[in-house]
């Protein structure tokens, strides 16, 4: 009896601790969101969206940073999405039992978790140094390298969910393989492919480290891709670390905008990715 009740109590205590752990995880998420909301919401104003980043003590907004972030992330996705979908297709459809494909999938997962600062250093040495100056192109290039493995991985996973009977039916009709992929498999997995691209967007939208010494930053509005460009995360970094109150307020406003965008896209991407299954 005492042994049994001791075993039962041990189990209960461990299960209680696991509940505490879960509550702790949820609490942290709530605490972070609460901090962002309480500090960010008062700093949100219309000027944020049409004034550029100011010098300390002057009224200003985040317009140039929002614009820069939008330009560089979209540019990165426009390049990474076709490459990533093609690469994911190669791994899911044309790999067979080839070792090279296994290796590519393996290395893709390593790249997926690679430190983003290292990607920034790579683009600095491979692009900024030869070009001789920082530029939005270099910033976008580093974001491409971060978005690519996300899209490859999601595409591969999503294509593997497409039932084999669909492929067989298409083969039986004498369809060329490229046509099977484009009109049957991609179409069947279209939601999944969009999920991958959205997740990649959510990933690059908040990236700071790879932009620090590729796109650098810019206090002014700039639409020249060959010149340094501001981005929301880098401006948040600069302004939050500054001693000026108004800069810090802008940083919190930017932080709120960026986090809400990313969380909404994350949830949307999940809903889209699981809607069919």
């Amino acid at each position: 009896m005492s042994l049994l009740s001791r075993r039962r109590w041990t189990s209960r205590i461990v299960m209680f601790l696991s509940m505490i752990a879960t509550a702790f995880g949820l609490l942290i998420l709530a605490a972070i969101l609460w901090t962002l909301l309480s500090r960010g919401i008062t700093a949100i104003s219309p000027e944020l969206f049409y004034l550029d980043t100011p010098p300390p003590g002057v009224a200003g907004g985040l317009a140039n940073a929002l614009y820069g972030s939008a330009v560089m992330t979209l540019l990165a996705l426009v390049i990474a999405a076709p490459l990533g979908v093609m690469a994911g297709t190669a791994l899911a459809e044309f790999a067979g039992t080839s070792r090279i494909a296994d290796a590519a999938g393996f290395l893709n997962d390593v790249l997926l978790s690679a430190p983003s600062i290292v990607i920034g250093l790579f683009v600095y040495t491979a692009m900024v140094v030869p070009m001789g100056h920082f530029s939005a192109w270099a910033g976008a290039a580093s974001l491409v390298i971060i978005a690519l493995p996300v899209i490859v991985r999601t595409t591969q996973d999503m294509l593997q969910l497409v039932p084999g009977t669909l492929r067989e039916a298409a083969v039986a009709l004498g369809t060329p393989r490229w046509r099977i992929v484009v009109s049957v498999i991609w179409r069947a997995a279209s939601n999944g492919l969009v999920t991958g691209i959205l997740l990649a967007y959510a990933r690059v939208a908040g990236e700071t480290a790879p932009l620090l010494f590729t796109a650098l930053s810019n206090q002014y509005w700039n639409s020249n891709l060959d010149a340094p460009m501001a981005s929301l995360p880098v401006v948040i970094f600069q302004f939050a670390m500054s001693p000026y109150d108004d800069w810090q307020r802008l940083a919190w406003a930017g932080a709120l905008i960026i986090t809400l965008t990313i969380l909404v896209i994350n949830i949307g991407a999940r809903a889209l990715g699981t809607s069919k299954h």
């Binding site: 908040g206 995360p233 932080a255 960026i258």
Partner: peptide, 8 residues
């Protein structure tokens, strides 16, 4: 959540 938000 982006890493910079954890930093803040």
């Amino acid at each position: 959540i982006p890493s910079i938000i954890y930093g803040l």
